[in-house]
Structure formats: C-alpha cells, structure tokens
Amino acid sequence: MKHEEIISEKKMDEQLNNFFAMAGKEHAPAGFTQNIMREIERNDTLATIYKPVISKTAWVVIGAGFVAIMLMAVFVFPNTGSATGVWQKLTGIFSFRLSDGNLFHLRHNLLHFLSGSQVLLSVLSVAVVVGWRYLLMQTWDITFLKSKIIRD
C-alpha cells in the first residue's frame, strides 16, 4: 500500500470514528428490558440439552465387561475340546442345573445355586465393571463430569 493511501485510510477512519462517536447508537425504547423479562418469567424456559441415556463412559464400561467375560470364558474355564468350545463355555457360565432335577425343591435348589460358580462369577464381574468405571472416572472423564454438574 502506498504511503498516501495509508494516510488517507487513517484520515478516513478518524473521520468516521468521529461521525460515529458524535451520532451514537440507537436507544432501545422505554420498557424494552421490562417487556423481555416479563416474557421470560411468563412462559420462557431454557432449552433442554438432550444427553444420551448411555454415556460414552458407560459404553466403554459395557465393552470392557463384555471383553472380560469373553476372556474368562476362554482362559478361566476348562476346555470342552469341541469346535464350538467358546460358545459352550459362554453358555456354561450362565447355565444353571437343578440339584436333583426337581423344580419345586426350592431351598435345596437355592443352596445348590449359591454354592455354584455362577454367584462367584457374577460378583467378580460386577466388581470388575465397577472398578473399571471408577478408574475411567478418575483418569479420562473428569471434564465430562464437571460440565455435567454445571449444566445440571
């Protein structure tokens, strides 16, 4: 840009700044603020921010739980030796056999169930999931939690 152009632009800016400073802004009509506040108090509400029911963290926890169960099925339980071994192991974890084949021997069946590996496995799985979630919250998701608290 040429020197004269810079000077003329400066001059132009100065002049326009003076014009604007002299003229000033429009003034909102009297009662403008009151009208808005009245309208807000009457029927306006803040927009709702929709959050997914299952959060990102929860999905990670679910995924980790699933992987944990898969790993346990493969490594913790004995091999059945068949081609469909993994599936059998998986269904084996959650299957439950009656102690003497009689559905109505409730007390007997309950004791049999509690003494089985399913209970231990369930408690272990829940502990893994809860522990994993706690670990995630401590490390990754502090900012997410903070923003959630502010919004709530």
């Binding site: 802004k25 003034h27 909102a28 403008f32 807000i40 803040l46």
Partner: peptide, 30 residues
C-alpha cells in the same frame, strides 16, 4: 436495537426483532 433498526428500517419490526433476539438468546443459553 441499533442493528435491527438499521437493517430492518422499521421501528416496530425492529423492536419486535430485538426482543425476539433476546428471547432466543435466553432459550439458547444452555
């Protein structure tokens, strides 16, 4: 209000528009 008046060039509409702007801003604050 200055902006709405100068863009819309109609006093009543500008006032209405300016009020709508604040109401929209209020609703959209989250």
């Amino acid at each position: 209000y200055s902006l709405t008046v100068n863009l819309l060039k109609q006093k009543e509409e500008a006032e209405e528009a300016a009020q709508d702007v604040f109401l929209k801003a209020f609703r959209g604050l989250p």
